[in-house]
Design a binder for these strands. Structure first.
Length: 870
RNA sequence: GCCCGCCUGGCGGAAUGGUAGACGCAGCGGACUUAAAAUCCGCAGUUGGAAACGACGUACCGGUUCGAGUCCGGUGGUGGGCACCA
């Protein structure tokens, strides 16, 4: 079904969400249901729920709806469980789109951003989220970034920040640094100009200082998805090996190499250095061919095509190095395109027999291949290598003093020898690089330093913070508007007073999001963080967001928290005790006969399954279910859904379809089904209108007992599902309860049944309140017009344990593991009674006929299995 | 290439080693209605059978177990992360 066939009935819904939703939102706000203190004194246990804050693009999308609904379920549930819950919201407000809007449409980034924030705040408020808006801030406000500058200066003083030269992707047309993702086929994503590699002086956070603990602490993040921990571990990339110093033959100079396989040193046949290696620079100086080769590597370096092809290119410098163990042996030094300057020492020793890249290289340039690790059961006399290097376990041979040792022992012995000879040592290496944070952009947090010709780099003194962005900037030419500003960068040196120049780079926006979670604890404070507040609320107990942030944002935040601890701002090391990564919201895509993408509103679905264009009737091709994107036109606007069905329906459907960590498909029919359910449970409450609330009867009839058991089982099951993040199962249990209430409505009237129905409807409303908070209030108010409490203020329902036990249990009876019947017995009936009943079942008896029972398995209240022979 | 998930009806999915397919969506049959919408009732893995009931069935092959969607080993498919990382 689609937009036209699924209309709200003409007569209007009985539950009028258009009136109810704003009413209850106002009620929550009026009674400050979601307010907490920075430093509470109520003695309640704290719970900090946070969803990744949005970038203010202008409109919320379905991913936001899913993210914030999931967080709101947690927040509302935990509040009902007696926790004092902090649930704040804000804006990740710096970034390139605002500058693009300025360049393309002449709107100032600040205006664009704040207009978007206003629009999105309204949309989020319509969702009925239990947010504490009093803590709201945007990272582009000086009241926020002022403190970020202060943190940076503290980090600088603590030695956690450094300025160093680094190779960057430089767009020569836009005059800016490009992130790796912004380089497409070696060209700038906006300008299309070939990207150059350029060395620039940039600011770096020394995240590598924390590499060991960032890795080790992952083991203790037991409420993080295993997948995310693994991705981070791979990203940090610890590797054990050795540093080896090679002497250049006929010279006093040396080359250092990092290797994880010191056991294969006897299999060496060459040494290779990166094109950017200092030794390569020296070769270039007096060798035109070397210069040509290095230049070629540089131009091809960023091309993904080259990397994909994996073609190994090299140039023999003519230099030779001496072997650390073999007296008199020397090996050629090559410049090779597959050696990376950024990893290890920018130089490797090549052992072709036991490394695939080295083997490819050796085969191409005719270098020696000497095996030194003998696979188990291989013959040393005949073992040789073809196209594949041998990297498995084995025994060292052709290796002098290492002969006969297994790989691990051989590694240890080689390192010991290197150390005793003074030409190497064991070393742990990391894949993680320092975090470059300089961006040549306007719409970001200014880096608070001043460059002075006499004093060097001088921090901006505290009393001059914040360094504010100038508002009068122009975007009429490429490059950094801060740099173009006529006066902003011209300042006096705070140290010597002479004319100096402000840093015109701004921070990577990942910096803004690396500490916002801590700022929420004391968002108005005139220091970055109030210790008492962050010590109370941190860490975030449940953080929720997309898997796309599994590495960078989460790793940077973990680093930042450690850095803030080491500079005395917080006491915790880990920012997020619990992490939940949600799946994406996908939708079908549609194409017209001319292959043009169509919006969902432009198509019509028919009963026979065909799909046509609404205006012309032409056939439509239904494409894959994939991520909503503007270019594929398969987006669904949450605002339109909320206007048609209400926020509760949107929230309910987005929770009901599948487990929250998986990708889901937004379907019109599913949303319509969710809407029908909201109407249905309202009717269940309405059906009690004429029936006065009475006191609980002493006894119930059979229908009443059945319904009460369904109610209390539902309480237990929904509670468990909410604890486990299996919200789709919680939804299913609530549907079951609704079905049970319908059965109760239809049952022959009996004493107490009305009471049981009222109990069930109340439970249904309260158990669904984390998901559908407005409807829950509406139903509760209908059941208890005189109540002085909102559902948002009530504690969570408790299941009566006595009612969780059935009056009878159904036991499956198997013969040889195959189901042959079921029997009804009293709970915990003794084994002999159960077995006798099982054998008496006609169908079971038939299966047992003529057989001898060898074994009787009885699992109380569950199953009986007869093992037979003959 | 390395590392890690996942694979259950038409669809999304449920199932502490114990009756596979809860619940929803889509579908079919029926009630109500002048009619439609809405609502309600019923059916529904495949297959044989009028039915009772039976056979098969959680990607495939094998193992452990009285009993396997679930645990173990292998194969295939699929998705993701990293990627000349020495």
């Amino acid at each position: 079904m689609n937009d036209t066939t699924t209309q709200v009935p003409e007569s209007g819904p009985r539950y009028d969400f258009t009136a109810a939703e704003p009413k209850w939102q106002a009620a929550w706000a009026g009674r400050a249901c979601f307010r907490v203190e920075d430093v509470p004194t109520d003695g309640k246990p704290k719970y900090y729920v946070l969803e990744m804050f949005p970038y203010p693009s202008g409109k919320i999308h379905m991913g936001h709806v899913r993210n914030y609904t999931l967080g709101d379920v947690v927040a509302r549930y935990k509040r009902a469980r007696g926790y004092s819950v902090m649930h704040p919201m804000g804006w990740d407000a710096f970034g390139l789109p605002a500058e693009n809007a300025a360049r393309e449409r002449g709107i100032h980034p600040a205006k664009w951003t704040f207009d978007n924030i206003a629009a999105m705040r309204t949309e989020l408020q319509r969702m009925g989220l239990s947010l504490e808006w009093e803590r709201e801030f945007a990272t582009c406000q000086p009241e926020y970034y002022c403190h970020q500058q202060k943190l940076f200066l503290d980090f600088l003083q603590a030695g956690l920040v450094e300025r160093k030269e680094s190779w960057v992707n430089w767009d020569p047309v836009d005059n800016t640094v490009l992130a790796n993702e912004q380089v497409i086929d070696g060209k700038g994503w906006r300008s299309g100009a070939p990207v150059e590699k350029k060395q620039l002086s940039q600011w770096f956070f020394s995240i590598t200082q924390y590499a060991p603990e960032l890795l080790d602490a992952l083991d203790h993040l037991d409420r993080w998805p295993e997948r995310v921990r693994l991705m981070q571990a791979n990203w940090i990339g610890r590797s054990e090996g050795a540093k080896v110093t090679f002497a250049l033959a006929g010279s006093t100079e040396t080359v250092e190499v990092y290797t994880t396989r010191p056991d294969t040193l006897f299999g060496m046949s060459f040494l290779a250095i990166a094109p950017e290696h200092p030794l390569a620079a020296a070769a270039v100086a007096h060798d035109a061919q070397a210069a040509e080769f290095v230049a070629e590597c540089r131009s091809r370096g960023t091309s993904e095509v080259t990397i994909e092809a994996g073609e190994k290119l090299g140039y023999d410098t003519g230099l030779r190095v001496e072997h650390p163990f073999i007296e008199g042996a020397t090996y050629p030094v090559w410049i090779a395109n597959f050696v990376l300057m950024e990893y290890g020492t920018g130089a490797i020793f090549g052992c072709p027999a036991h490394d695939q890249r080295d083997l490819d290289f050796a085969r191409k340039y005719g270098l020696d291949v000497t095996p030194v690790v003998l696979p188990p059961a291989a013959d040393p006399a005949s073992f040789s290598l073809g196209k594949d290097a041998y990297t498995g376990p084995g025994t060292a041979f052709n290796s002098g003093f290492l002969d006969g040792l297994d790989v691990d022992a051989s590694k240890r012995a080689a390192i010991e020898k290197l150390e005793s000879l003074g030409v190497g040592k064991g070393l742990t290496n990391w894949r993680l690089r320092d975090w470059g944070v300089s961006r040549q952009r306007y719409w970001g947090c200014p880096i608070p330093v001043i460059h002075c010709g006499a004093c060097g780099t001088v921090p901006v003194p505290d009393d001059q913070l914040p360094v504010r962005l100038p508002e009068d900037v122009t975007f009429d030419r490429p490059g950094n508007p801060l740099d173009h500003h006529p006066t902003w960068k011209l300042v006096d040196c705070p140290s010597c007073g002479k004319p100096a120049r402000r840093e015109t780079d701004t921070f990577d926006t990942f910096v803004d999001s690396s500490w916002y979670f801590a700022r929420y604890c004391s968002p108005k404070a005139d220091v970055p963080l109030v210790k008492a507040a962050v010590d109370h609320w941190m860490p975030v107990d449940q953080y929720i967001g997309g898997i796309e942030h599994a590495i960078l944002h989460l790793l940077y935040s973990r680093f930042f928290t450690r850095a803030m601890k080491d500079t005395g701002h917080v006491s915790v090391e880990e920012p997020f005790a619990g992490l939940f990564t949600q799946g994406m919201v996908n939708h079908e895509s549609y194409r017209a006969p001319d292959n043009r993408w169509l919006y969902p509103e432009e198509i019509e679905k028919h009963a026979d399954g065909s799909v046509t264009m609404r205006d012309t009737g032409q056939p439509v091709t239904v494409g894959r279910v994939e991520a909503m994107s503007k270019s594929r036109r398969n987006t669904i606007d949450p605002g339109a859904i909320i206007a048609r069905y209400g926020a509760d329906t949107a929230r309910w459907f987005i929770l009901s379809d599948n487990p929250p960590e998986r990708d889901m498909e937004w379907t019109e029919s599913g949303a319509a089904g969710a809407f029908r359910f909201t109407q249905r449970i309202y009717r269940l409450a309405e059906a009690l209108d004429g029936i006065p609330a009475e006191i609980m009867p002493d006894a119930f009839g059979p229908a009443g007992r059945t319904l009460r058991r369904a109610t209390h089982r539902c309480i237990a099951a929904v509670t468990e599902s909410l604890e486990n993040f299996t919200y789709n199962v919680a939804v299913a249990r609530l549907y079951e309860l609704a079905n049970a209430i319908t059965d109760g409505e239809r049952a022959t009237p009996e004493a107490g049944l009305a009471w049981a129905r009222r109990e069930a409807v109340e439970a249904l409303a309260r158990l669904s309140s984390p998901m559908m908070p407005h409807l829950a209030e509406e139903i509760y108010a209908r059941l208890y017009p005189d109540s002085s409490h909102l559902v948002a203020e009530l504690s969570w329902p408790e299941a009566d344990r006595a009612l969780l036990v059935s009056e009878t249990v159904t036991i499956a009876v198997q013969v040889m593991g195959k189901l042959r019947g079921t029997i009804e017995v009293a709970p915990n009936a003794p084994a002999d009674v159960v077995l006798a009943a099982a054998e008496a079942d006609p169908n079971v008896a038939k299966a047992l006929e003529g057989k001898r029972i060898v074994k009787r398995v009885h699992v109380p209240n569950r199953i009986v299995n007869f093992v037979v022979a003959g």
